[in-house]
């Protein structure tokens, strides 16, 4: 079936299977591979995107549930050719190891700072609790979020 959705500010249209996830549609139909496909269970958060400004696991959302809605992926965070401050902070603090979890963490952290400009450590923990880094690089990820918040 046909779905129309806005992705990173641009209108898109795609022919999808009824049981297909938003993640699959983004990666395989719309050419946006930034959101990663890992657990497909909602455990790891590597597929995190914003759906109508709410942080979701795109592996648990059917593409048809996003029909008519607004999606922002990690590809849509940069503005005017400049990385989002969370992305810059991840690079500056070395918060990236293998990198597979990074897009999900970046989207979750950007979402946190959008709603809470000066989060406490507990608030950062809560906001990132749905994202796993199997390299266990959490200390640097915290540094990155604190750095981005301070800017």
């Amino acid at each position: 079936m046909n779905v129309r959705l806005t992705v990173n500010g641009e209108p898109h249209e795609a022919e999808v299977w009824e049981g297909e996830s938003l993640l699959f549609a983004l990666r395989e139909r719309l050419g946006l591979p930034g959101s990663k496909n890992a657990c497909e269970q909602g455990e790891c958060g590597s597929c995190s995107v914003l759906l109508d400004d709410r942080l979701v696991c795109s592996c648990l959302v059917l593409a048809v549930q996003a029909d008519g809605h607004d999606v922002v992926t990690v590809e849509g965070l940069a503005e005017d050719g400049r990385l989002h401050r969370v992305q810059e902070a991840f690079a500056a603090t070395g918060a990236v190891q293998c990198g597979f979890c990074t897009p999900g963490f970046v989207v979750a952290a950007a979402d946190l700072l959008e709603h809470n400009a000066d989060p406490s450590d507990d608030e950062i923990r809560e906001a990132l609790s749905g994202n796993l880094c199997r390299c266990t690089g959490y200390a640097k990820i915290f540094d990155a979020v604190r750095l981005a918040a301070s800017q």
């Binding site: 909602g42 958060g45 942080l55 648990l60």
Partner: peptide, 9 residues
Amino acid sequence: AASPQLRSM
């Protein structure tokens, strides 16, 4: 319950 991602859906 769950994580922020799951609670928003």
